[in-house]
């Protein structure tokens, strides 16, 4: 029998917030949410999309989501980029300055798992290597709608659409 564990299992102690904490978070941020964005080595594509969230086309204020300038008022850390060496320390300091409970969202292929850069001499290649990540938003860059879905999912206000799939083999039907 074949088992399907992840080869590169993320360190579960830092990447998986407990279900209880998750429920508490959903309760706390059910109504309004303040986001602090940190660019940790993006190409600016992700920022361009995030900025448009407050434009008339997307207007996330209607959903009770706001951007804040200081980490001290932030509930959620929205991180873009491949986590360059020079940004590790500023990123961790921003996280430390946020009050608990705090949420972390990895935005775009770069922050989720390195994108084209991966783990290299200059990039860590994934946010989960240094912070506990609540939600991953894939895409390069994720569209504003994908960002809204990711933020609402983090708050328990939207459904997750993708699930791990193990496909049947073409030759024989075993799964």
């Amino acid at each position: 029998m074949v088992t399907f564990e992840l080869l590169d299992e993320p360190d579960s102690s830092i990447t998986e917030p407990s279900t209880a904490l998750r429920r508490q978070i959903q309760h706390l941020f059910g109504r309004s949410l303040h986001i602090r964005h940190v660019d940790a080595g993006s190409c600016n594509g992700c920022e361009s999309e995030i900025k448009l969230l407050t434009s008339p086309y997307y207007d996330i204020h209607r959903l009770g989501i706001f951007f804040t300038t200081t980490p001290r008022h932030a509930d959620l850390l929205l991180v873009t980029g491949a986590i360059t060496r020079a940004m590790v320390d500023p990123l961790q300091r921003t996280y430390a300055a946020m009050p608990e409970p705090r949420l972390v969202v990895a935005t775009g292929a770069c922050a989720c798992d390195g994108g084209i850069f991966g783990r290299s001499c200059l990039t860590l290649g994934r946010l989960s290597a240094i912070l506990p990540v609540d939600t991953y938003i894939p895409g390069c860059p994720p569209t504003p709608l994908a960002l809204i879905h990711g933020l609402l999912l983090t708050l328990g206000r939207a459904e997750q659409r993708l699930h791990r799939q193990i496909l049947a083999h073409h030759a024989d039907g075993k799964a």
Binding site: S128, Y136, I137, P138, A146, H149, Q160, L162
Partner: peptide, 20 residues
Amino acid sequence: SDGELAVRSPQDAQTIVPLE
């Protein structure tokens, strides 16, 4: 073309074809 791709666990972003 769908865009609702966010996941809470990295495993949920994977599709796997087993091969013996």
